[in-house]
Computed example of a mutant assay.
Amino acid sequence: MPQNKKEGLFFTTIVCFSMVISMSAYNLLLHGQFSLGNLFGGLVPGFIVAFFFDVLVVSIPAKKIAFALPVNKEKKLHMIIAVSSCMVLGMVFFMSMYGVFMQFGFTENFMSYYIGAFSKNLIMALPLQLLVVGPICRMILSMSRQTSWLKETNS
């Protein structure tokens, strides 16, 4: 887990990017629209929106909820699972809205499209975060601590 602001920003960026590219590919495949052009064409706007929601909307409430859950706070793995799960729920809530709006606009069928998108995204995003993206990004963060660029300086 990040230990300072630089590490937090770095970790958030790599997790956000990894989840956006993975979930974008997943959704394009679901809709039969996968191509590298479509994937990379939506990557920058998707990342910007996801980063905004992550940092400014989801992160603080998700962490508050996770720390309020009846989990063993002494066990790092329990807290990682709690925080990651709460983050995924919040991000899927907002990013499914974003995806439906970008694909269909705000029509009379928005809620039915949204419910379908939310459930399909949650089924993919939760295990992706807990089993693949989270562990890989924590490993990258751990390896990056070997370098001096993530360490806080007093200057």
Rank of each mutant, 00 (worst) to 15 (best):
M1T: 08
M1S: 12
M1P: 13
Q3K: 10
E7M: 01
L9Q: 07
L9A: 13
L9D: 06
F11R: 11
F11W: 12
F11H: 11
F11K: 04
T12K: 12
T12A: 15
I14W: 02
I14K: 08
S18Q: 13
S18R: 14
S18P: 07
M19S: 05
M19E: 03
M19N: 07
M19R: 08
V20S: 03
I21T: 13
S22H: 00
M23V: 02
S24C: 00
N27R: 08
L28H: 13
L29K: 13
L30R: 15
H31I: 00
Q33P: 00
Q33W: 04
S35K: 03
L36M: 12
G37W: 03
G37P: 02
G37Y: 03
G37D: 01
G37V: 02
L39Y: 01
F40P: 02
L43Y: 09
V44R: 12
P45T: 04
P45I: 00
F47R: 08
F47S: 03
F51G: 04
F51W: 07
F52T: 05
F53G: 02
F53L: 01
F53I: 03
D54A: 03
D54S: 11
V55P: 00
S59G: 04
S59K: 07
I60D: 12
P61S: 00
K64F: 01
I65D: 03
I65P: 00
A66D: 07
A68H: 03
V71K: 08
E74V: 06
K76W: 05
H78D: 11
H78V: 04
I81V: 14
A82Y: 01
S84P: 07
C86E: 01
M87E: 10
V88T: 15
L89E: 07
G90N: 10
G90A: 04
M91T: 09
V92R: 14
F93L: 11
F94V: 08
F94T: 14
M95H: 10
M95K: 09
S96A: 14
S96R: 12
V100F: 09
V100N: 11
F101Y: 15
Q103S: 11
F104H: 07
F104A: 06
G105E: 06
F110Y: 13
S112H: 05
Y114P: 10
Y114S: 15
I115K: 15
G116S: 14
G116E: 10
A117T: 14
A117I: 06
F118D: 15
L122A: 07
I123L: 10
I123P: 03
I123N: 11
A125P: 01
A125V: 01
L126M: 13
P127W: 11
L128D: 12
Q129I: 05
L130D: 06
L130N: 05
L131P: 04
V132W: 05
V133Q: 07
P135S: 09
I136F: 11
I140F: 12
I140W: 12
I140L: 13
L141T: 09
L141G: 08
S142W: 12
M143E: 15
Q146H: 14
T147V: 13
T147I: 13
S148E: 11
S148H: 08
L150F: 03
K151A: 05
K151H: 15
E152N: 09
E152K: 09
T153K: 15
